[in-house]
Simulated assay, not measured.
Amino acid sequence: MSQSKDQSIADLRIDYSQASLSEADSAADPITQFGKWFDEAIQAEVPEANAMSLATVGPNGRPSSRIVLIKQFDERGFTWFTNFESRKGHELLAHPYGALLFHWVALERQVRIEGRVERVSENESDAYFHSRPLRSRLGAIASAQSQPISSRDLLEAEYVKAEQEFGDHPPRPNHWGGYRLLPDTVEFWQGRRSRLHDRILYTLDADGNWQRQRLQP
């Protein structure tokens, strides 16, 4: 890469100025605060406001991340659905902890969430699976996620095979279902001018109460 290109990348910057976040303005509970910000992201029509980065750690201690879609959040935690036999599924089996990151660029906001991860109940996985579009359900059966395959044609043949076998009523495969991250750390980041950003960190104490503090940017 040329020096001029390096310099042009280094010069890319935005002075954030849309909003602020103070201890007084933030909710006492991070789930409540997340719900407020999530609603504002939806109202602002942020593209794929439900998209989040999920970071996991493999048996070798190396991290990996990917984008997944949140499907539910409440006082229990943050839920998404996937193939249990995927790379992230194997990594969560070895190390049942994860980190989530929401980045709502248009609002100059980030939310970081960390905690233990567990599978949701069979009933929850069944209910969500059967709410999905038919083609998505068939795709979950056809694809051995994260496993090598020799060609796109073979993948599509597996889809046709699932379609022929199950028709309009495919069952949820045992290798597919939901995970829930039970947060013990949640940080809200609001961009501010001069890189003096607002960072409010919530941590769960030994008594199950949320403690709140400001971090320096």
Results as ranks from 00 to 15, higher is better:
34 F>E: 01
114 E>A: 11
66 R>D: 05
77 G>L: 08
84 F>S: 03
101 L>P: 02
137 R>G: 01
81 F>Y: 15
106 A>K: 12
107 L>F: 09
26 S>E: 03
91 E>F: 04
7 Q>A: 14
2 S>K: 15
53 S>D: 00
131 S>P: 00
85 E>D: 11
85 E>Y: 05
137 R>P: 00
13 R>I: 06
50 N>C: 12
63 P>E: 05
6 D>L: 15
83 N>C: 11
83 N>G: 03
104 W>D: 02
24 A>M: 02
69 L>W: 05
41 A>T: 03
7 Q>F: 09
69 L>V: 12
74 D>Y: 09
128 Y>M: 06
89 G>V: 13
119 R>N: 07
52 M>R: 04
95 H>P: 00
79 T>G: 01
45 E>R: 15
19 A>V: 00
9 I>A: 11
130 H>Q: 15
2 S>V: 04
7 Q>I: 10
100 L>G: 00
135 R>T: 11
6 D>S: 12
29 D>Q: 13
104 W>L: 06
53 S>Q: 08
37 W>D: 02
89 G>P: 02
55 A>T: 15
129 F>C: 03
126 D>I: 09
123 N>V: 14
129 F>V: 04
61 G>Q: 04
113 I>F: 03
45 E>C: 11
90 H>Y: 05
131 S>D: 08
82 T>P: 00
129 F>W: 06
116 R>V: 13
73 F>Y: 11
83 N>A: 13
50 N>A: 15
114 E>M: 05
96 P>Y: 04
14 I>M: 07
107 L>K: 03
43 Q>S: 15
29 D>F: 12
43 Q>C: 05
108 E>F: 12
97 Y>N: 08
119 R>A: 09
116 R>G: 02
68 V>Y: 01
10 A>K: 13
139 G>H: 08
114 E>H: 10
24 A>H: 06
37 W>M: 04
96 P>A: 08
129 F>Y: 14
63 P>L: 14
112 R>S: 10
86 S>C: 12
28 A>S: 12
6 D>V: 13
77 G>C: 07
2 S>G: 07
141 I>N: 01
21 L>N: 00
81 F>E: 00
35 G>A: 14
35 G>D: 07
124 E>Y: 04
65 S>P: 03
37 W>P: 01
48 E>C: 05
27 A>W: 02
105 V>K: 12
57 V>D: 02
109 R>V: 06
134 L>C: 09
92 L>M: 10
87 R>E: 11
100 L>V: 10
18 Q>A: 09
143 S>H: 10
32 T>S: 14
60 N>G: 06
19 A>I: 00
102 F>N: 01
62 R>V: 14
138 L>D: 02
36 K>L: 11
104 W>I: 05
43 Q>V: 09
11 D>A: 15
51 A>P: 11
90 H>F: 03
45 E>A: 12
54 L>S: 01
130 H>S: 11
124 E>N: 05
30 P>Y: 05
122 E>A: 15
137 R>Q: 13
129 F>H: 02
43 Q>H: 06
86 S>P: 02
65 S>W: 07
102 F>W: 06
143 S>M: 08
66 R>H: 07
22 S>V: 13
59 P>I: 08
16 Y>R: 08
78 F>T: 02
80 W>Q: 02
76 R>Q: 12
